[in-house]
Each structure stands twice: as structure tokens, then as C-alpha cells.
Design a protein around this nucleic acid. Structure first.
Lengths: 156, 156
DNA sequence: GGCAACTACCTAACTAAGTGAGCAATTTCG
DNA sequence: CGAAATTGCTCACTTAGTTAGGTAGTTGCC
């Protein structure tokens, strides 16, 4: 093997990336974030869209149409996704209180646990990281993150 | 609505996320990164796996097996992905110089342009962001990004 | 050198998840 | 009230993945 040990790049922004260690680490962080979704879905035994829907349902109930819109899929697909989540016991369909056309899809405790159980370790560590910053450092980091988000947002 | 204005959550780490503005912005940045892949793929008329393969090919040629391993799919799937990239003219199959079983898949100029054209604006802005930091700030940001990457890495 | 075991890649048949079109029930608005 | 819009569903079809298995080429051991 003449090539260096694998060390999967997995980067979305490759080639002509010679900038310094800050941007290089930012790239790694974004890659970690990207890989986290499929990894999580795999562990939970869900597809990535099912996971995405479950995430939305954690915040508040929504109908299939709204979920379809947020995920960028058709309502037909959303129907199927909700079907599968319901079949696994991660979500439930409830009648909408005021509009009888609609269905309110809500996450069950099972669905919430499935997600939170995996996310907790990260939450804990991130909270520690933030706590370790001084007020001045927090400002610097906040500004950088905001700027970086704007830059990445150019791809959307 | 007792909750704050919609503001598309799209977050992977929802519920019980009350920490400060730094982690909140980090969440937004990671979400932007996650959404960038499908958005880019859509614009380029590729599937997300085809895009991922193209990214790897930007760095150096690779065989279907290696690509399959990096993407976490079977070699059969990798064959098909390469087929599609070749059909679109974004990649080419070349005989491996020393091992006649292997195929070296290389990105064509067309493939490179497809990717770089979309990525350039982000590169430019990110470079500016980095340049705007003092040396001291750079250290703070670097440490934060490294720590955050470790935390997110817990999900992998 | 020659045979066994392994590797790289491909094809074929099937499965799963999405799209597009269209339908019935309900709500909204002129 | 009636027309138009909206919600969520089903059905037929497409597409990208998996599993299983086959062919060609390489490596290692006697």
C-alpha cells in the first residue's frame, strides 16, 4: 500500500482546501455532523427521513403535509414515513382538534427515548465545552460561528 | 403560540436544548452543513451518494471497493454509482496500472467543475472569516471547534 | 511452476422508499 | 350557497439500494 492509511476524508469541500487549521477543523466538525445523522438512524433502526420526522415531532406535533414540506418530499412519501413510525410505536396519529381534514402526528415516549438516549452524551459534553469558556471567549466563538453559518448558508 | 416564532428547527438535537447562544448557533451551523449536501446534490442533478463519491474522487482516484467502504454501502451499489457518474461524464474508469482486477475511477474536469462551481462562494467567504481573526482569537476558536468535534463525534 | 485461497468488480433478482397522479373529505372564501 | 383550495390517502411506477453469486486476476505456499 503506497497510499497513507485510509483516514476517510468524507469531506464535502475538498480540493483546493489549503487554508489554516481553523477552517480545517471546521471542515472536520461539519463532516462529523453530516455523518452523525445516518449513524444515528442506523442505530435506531430508522431511515434518515424517519429520523428527521421524529426530530421535528420532538418539538411539536405536525401533520403529514407540514412534515413533507419541511423534509422536501411529497405528501405521499410523508404518509408512508408516518405509517412506519406509527408501526414501530414511535409516533401516533391523533385527530386535529379544530380541522377534521388534518391529522396531528405526535411523538410517543418511545420515540422520544430513542432519540434522546443517543443524543444525551453529546449534549453533556457540549454543555461542558461551553461552560469552559470565559465571557470574552464566548463572544469570539459566537461571532465566528455566526459568520461561518452565513458562509455555509451560501450552499442552501 | 407560546413558543417562539417557527424559524424552521430542522435540528437533530432537539428538546431540552436550553443552553446559551453559543451552542444554539453551533446547532444552526451543523444544521446548515447537513442541509448543504442534499441541496448541492439537487442542484447538480446527482444523488447524495453520487455527490459523496465525486467528493472523494476530487482528492484522489479510487476503486469501487474503496468507495463502497468509505460510503458505507456495498460494492454492488458502488458499481452502480460509478456507472451513473460515468454516464453523466463526471467520472471515468481507467485500468489500474499494476493490478488488472482493479479499476481506477477518476473525476473528469466536468465533475470537478460541477462541484467547485457551487463550493467556491463558500470557500471565499470562509477564508475571509478566518482572515478576520487575530492570532489569539484563532486559538480560542480552534480549541472550541476541536472540542465540539469531539463531542459530536460521540454520535458516530 | 502450479494449485488453493483470496480479492476486485460486475450482474441479476429482489426490496424499500420515493414520485406523480388522482380521489374523497373538509374547510375557506367570494 | 357553491367554487376553489387544502389535507391526507392510495395506486402504479421509478430508482437506488441489498443479497447472492459469478468471472477474472493476484498472491502465497508447496
Amino acid at each position: 500500500m503506497g497510499t497513507p492509511p485510509a483516514l476517510g476524508p468524507q469531506s464535502q469541500w475538498v480540493d483546493a482546501w489549503q487554508p489554516g487549521p481553523v477552517l480545517d477543523t471546521l471542515r472536520r466538525l461539519l463532516d462529523s455532523g453530516r455523518r452523525a445523522t445516518p449513524a444515528l438512524a442506523r442505530r435506531a433502526g430508522l431511515t434518515h427521513t424517519e429520523l428527521a420526522v421524529l426530530e421535528h415531532l420532538m418539538e411539536d406535533p405536525a401533520g403529514p403535509s407540514e412534515l413533507a414540506q419541511r423534509l422536501g418530499v411529497t405528501t405521499a412519501a410523508a404518509s408512508g414515513i408516518v405509517d412506519r413510525l406509527v408501526a414501530r410505536g414511535h409516533a401516533q396519529r391523533q385527530p386535529h382538534p379544530t380541522d377534521r381534514r388534518r391529522t396531528a402526528v405526535v411523538a410517543t415516549p418511545s420515540g422520544r427515548e430513542e432519540l434522546m438516549g443517543h443524543l444525551m452524551p453529546m449534549f453533556a459534553e457540549l454543555a461542558q465545552v461551553e461552560a469552559s469558556l470565559t465571557e470574552a471567549e464566548r463572544e469570539v466563538v459566537l461571532r465566528f460561528l455566526t459568520d461561518a453559518d452565513r458562509a455555509v448558508g451560501r450552499l442552501l
